[in-house]
Structure formats: C-alpha cells, structure tokens
Design a protein around this nucleic acid. Sequence first.
RNA 1: GCGCUCGUAGCUCAGUUGGAUAGAGCGUUGGCCUCCGGAGCCAAAGGCCGCAGGUUCGAAUCCUGCCGGGCGCGCCA
Length: 551
Amino acid sequence: MRAKQQLEEKLKQILKELNMTWPEKAVLEPPKDKKFGDLAANLALVLAKEAGKNPRDLAAALADKLRCDDSLIADVSVAGPGFLNVRFSPDFWREEIRLVEEKGADYGRNDSGNRKRVQVEYVSANPTGPLHIGHGRGAAIGDSLARILRFSGYDVETEYYINDAGRQMRLLGLSVWLRARELKNLPVSWPEDWYKGAYIVEIAKELLAARPGLLDLPEEQSQDICFEYAMQTIFDGIKRDLKDFRVSHERWFSERSLVDSGAVARGFEMLKKSGYSYEKDGALWFRTTALGDDLDRVLKKSDGSLTYFASDIAYHNNKFERGFELVVDIWGADHHGYIPRMRAAVEALGKPRESFEVVLVQLVNLLKAGEQVAMSTRAGQFETLADVIMEVGADAARFMFLSRKSDSPLDFDLDLVKRRTLDNPVYYVQYAHARVSSVLRRAAERGLSLPERATAELLALLKEEEELELLRILDRFTDTVSGAARNLAPHHVSYYLMELSGALHSYYAAHQVLGAGSGQLSLARLALLRAVGQTVRNGLELLGVEAPESM
RNA sequence: GCGCUCGUAGCUCAGUUGGAUAGAGCGUUGGCCUCCGGAGCCAAAGGCCGCAGGUUCGAAUCCUGCCGGGCGCGCCA
C-alpha cells in the first residue's frame, strides 16, 4: 500500500515533467519472482504502446529519473519487454512496523469505498425450520463481506429478508394447526405438501400448552395464531444459531410489511410506466426478455395472486428507495437462473446494472471421514448449522467457509475441520497469532520491555531477508482488504493470512527472537512480531474468527 | 434444446483491472533445533492452465467453436 502509493506518486511527478499522463491501464504490483524487485510497473509498456515508442528506452529514462530522486528507493532496473522494477530500501520497509504500531486495530483500514452506501442481504432463509450448513456458508460470507466493506470505507447495512407472506407460510400455520388437532385426537386430513418435521410437533405442543382453547377458535383465526407462533419460535432459533455463529443483521425486513404498504402495487406502476409490462392470458407479464432474460415472467397470475418475483421486485425497489447505491444479494447457487430477471427488474426500475450484485454461494457437501453425510431430514445427522458449530466450533467453520471462492462447491469434512494441521488452515493462522503472543509474554517475563513505539534506530537492526519479507507482506495487507471489498471476495483475506502466517513460521524457525544475542536485537524482532500479530488479528477480525493468545 | 457457471500438479484449491520462468497445502521422498510453542521449519519430485483457433508487444485470464462436469430453465416460493 505505502510502497505502491509512494512509487505511483513519484512516477506521476516524473511523467508530469515529461508532459505525459498516468495511463488507466498502468499497474504497479509485486512481481511474481522476487529477484525482479519489490514492485514492478508496466507503465513504460503501456505508454510506449500509445506513443509508438520503444518501451525499454522509455523505461530506462524513467528509471534514471527515479534513481536520482529518492533515498527510499534502493534499486531500479529495467527488465523483460520493458518492466520498471523497483526495490525499496530496508529503511523504507522497516517504517511499516511503526505504521502498524500507530494504527493498531485500524491497520488495514482504508477509504477505497468512498462512503458508498451498500446493502448486503444474506441468509434470508424462510422460517420453516432450523438453519442448515448451506445457510452457514452464506452467513459467514455475508457477515465477513460486510466487515470487509466497512473496513474499506463503505457505508454498509446488513439485512435479513423475512419471507413471511405467501403460500409457504400459510402451509406452515396449517401444518402446526393440523399437528395440534392430531395431538387432541381430532380428525385431520393432510394436504399434499405440508411440513413434516418433528419440530412442528414440538411447536404445536408448546402452543397448546400456552393456549388450551386454541382449537375452539374459528379455523382461520386459529391457523393464524399457529402461524405467528411457529414463525416466532423458528426465528428465535435462527437468531440464536446466527448469534452462536457470530453473525448479526442490522435489519430484519418483513415481506408482509412490503405487501401491506402497497409497495408491490407501486412497483407495478413503475414497470407499467416504463413500458415493460403487458397483459396476456389474463395475467400481468414483465417483458424481461427486452433486458436480457430468456423468457418473459409473470407478475400477477390469472387468479389475481402475485408471484414471488413481483414482491421481490418491490423489495429491491424499496432497497433503492432507501438510498443504497449498491445492493448485494447473497444467494444459493441454485438460484443463479434468477439473476437475469432480477437484473432486468433493476434496470427497468431505472437503476444502473452495476448497482446490483449477486454473490453466488455454492452448495456445501457435508462429509465425515471422506464419506458424504446424508442431508435428509432424518434425525441424528449433523445437518443443522447449530450441530456443526457445536461439533467443530465457530472459528473452524467460519474459516473453512471463507477459505474458498464462494462460487465453487465446498467439501466440508467434519473430521478435517477438527484436525489441527495445515489441512485445516484456521489452526495454522491462529497458531501464528498464539505464537507471537507467547513470545511477547515470555519476553515480558524475562524483563524485556518493548516500548509502545519502536524507534527507527532500533528497527535498523532488522536486516535478515525473512524480516524484510515479512514487512513486504505486511505492506500488502491494506491492498488485500480493499481488493477483497472491490471483488466481494472475502477469501482473499483468508489466503493472505495463510501466507503471512507461513512467512512468520519460517522466520521463527530460522531466527531466534529472545535468544538473538543482544537485547536490542531481541527488542527489534519483538517489535516485528508484534506488528505481524496485530495484522493477523485484524485480518481474523474481518473473517469473524478469534485470534487466541494461546491454544 | 436454451441459459449460467466451472475445467490449473496424483488430491483439494489460489491466481486481484491481461504481465516476466504458472503458485500453495495435502499426499510422496529425504532432512531439521539438548535453545523463544515440533499444532512448526527446510528441500526434492510433480504442469500441453480441458482441446482448437483468434485478439496483441504479452493470454490461465479477453473473444469464437468444440469436449467434459455442476446448476437453472413453472401463472412454485
């Protein structure tokens, strides 16, 4: 971050002197091979192409300018087709420790989001039963993404959409009501698709105990009570599960409130005005094909009732009315076919395409010792999120969910997630943090007192290659965070943490800290470890994973 | 059939807006502290980045076609 910023600034200044401007496509990044230096710029390649010049000549000219300019730059060279390779001085890198010390828990925080208003909606599972492991993945991704976006200067609000209107909810009420009648030995006839789960019986029992006269009420009223009670009970469970998973939503948004407020009707009006709706076969249609979908979609059925899509349009319209500039939905991958029509809707509502993003979360295969665990409703299996958290802990589960691109299927092996080896990277990263904490504790016991801020003089003792390597990695943390935010990809942070932890373990094995030979050198190395520990902690915080002092 | 998506080491996967000789872990093989946490470290072997074209200084990345896997394709929610 600092390296990138400073070099970019220098180069811009030089370009200005040469009457050239910084091209959009210019990139500064660490080269794949370290022998090229700390940072490589393709600037000359891009500029030379535009001007029809030789990139190597241009790069050489830029390199000369850079060289005479700066004490922080140790070496500049030109290589390959015209890359400008820069190596910073050790002093430049050592400053990173002081920056971490200054920023502390805010190290890595950045303002790349420009206070853009973003909503992240996730989980939003129907209140028809407890959360399962697939919901857990969506929950971890949504929660972590919100943390990362906030850390990157976005103005974020998280939301859970409650599907409390519609047929499924009537079925839920009916199912409880029928179970209650069954418990009272009243005649029942089961409809085709009702909720058969054992928890429905439990809910019915509880409700009967609380309201003995329930079944004496008129049928409709009685079923309404059943529905309300069942939904409340199930949501209590969902909220408890989410809390145990360290996931919280700022707002719980009810679909029913949307219907009641007339928002759906308003949505229809907007579509009609924009010319995208029409009537056919007694139903109201939305011409989504005009906006990239492969079929037109029904909004209002010929029997007068609304489709799910209709209220979803109203819901998203409501989101934009609330002033969000970017709406991020986290969906199960089985809904991906739904994206084109939702995009079409957003566009018909007059919003730019890029104001709506969907993060698809692929299915989770639950395994035990390599064997697939059936995800059926049968009891006794680790099928619910609560069971999984109890089995492996929130930290391991969250890290596992966040250590893979969301859009690729994930094998979640219960035995592997409990294992404490690199197979299961959460321990590798947490161990790095615990190790740092342990050494700092030990140092204090031995009377080595590390000041809150290290001086440049002290840090000048850091000369080992592994030390400079750690510092270079630290410098990338901020970029990693802002990149994860921009790409809506929390797993970038996980991979970064694994790399940083690996570098720490290597360093630790190669060099003594407490036994470094001189007290001053020990202190300098302790300062480095403390900065690494802080960065690991900040990164884990973004994943919602704890950074233990000891394990 | 149409649409979306993925195809990278034996396995599981990274690869940021196109950058240099494609990375990590597991597994395999061989090593490492009488010392700060061995839950660790070091090293070796392992690749036509699905295939074939195209775009350009440059492609795992972008475009087209094909092959293979996953998912979706209701006046369901």
